[in-house]
Design a protein around this nucleic acid. Sequence first.
DNA 1: CAGCATCCGAACCGATACTG
DNA 2: CAGTATCGGTTCGGATGCTG
Lengths: 120, 120
Amino acid sequence: MSHTRECACCDPGAPASSGGEMTCYCPLGGVIETVGRKYAMQVVALLGAEGPTRYGELEERLEVTSSSTLSDCLSDLVDENLIERRSFDEVPPRVEYSLTPRGRQLEERLQPLLEWAATE
Amino acid sequence: MSHTRECACCDPGAPASSGGEMTCYCPLGGVIETVGRKYAMQVVALLGAEGPTRYGELEERLEVTSSSTLSDCLSDLVDENLIERRSFDEVPPRVEYSLTPRGRQLEERLQPLLEWAATE
DNA sequence: CAGCATCCGAACCGATACTG
DNA sequence: CAGTATCGGTTCGGATGCTG
């Protein structure tokens, strides 16, 4: 197993404590940074389940309290290449968000969590 | 499907928009609140993979920069019934943390995410 | 409709220092 | 060893108001 995130626990040069394989949990910290933000997971899950969705519907379905918060979140997800933004040249304006391939990978791995959360 | 978290999209009294099933993504927000905190996911994943672990080893393995941050995180996880704290009456003092059954459920659902994160 | 700008309070996180 | 106390900087999130 390998990953790009640097940390001493995975550094080949570092001495292994017991000589065995040493799983690193730092990458998980990376996922959480991107996904821990408010609405991020919900956006990914919703887009995965329902396909391209408009901004306004995201606001409704996720019960967003402040539009700027959702707006910032969406920008981040776009920057992280997890979702894609597509705007149509219409009036009134229309914008749809959808998962990128990478976003879909994440969404698939989020499924078990969502199902469990829903029964809690 | 049902869950305890209240939200209008799941309110039985609320009118369904298209008469069909309406998946609610709010519970996911709940998971994230507990798990979005720094070190939380890593602690759960590590305990799941390696069993009861001492405080000091958690600090090392997770490359914790500030002990108070980890300390707070652990308290939260205990409060949320995801991990268990067991202290031994020895000198020097020893404390071990382990997953509760509920914590293990979460850990299992975190696995796919960890594996994916490690390859990113 | 789909947002961004701004402001402000709350929460979080890290560093340092100290205890049982 | 295994924490807690405190403090300050930074980020986050909510509310309001305004544009293309």
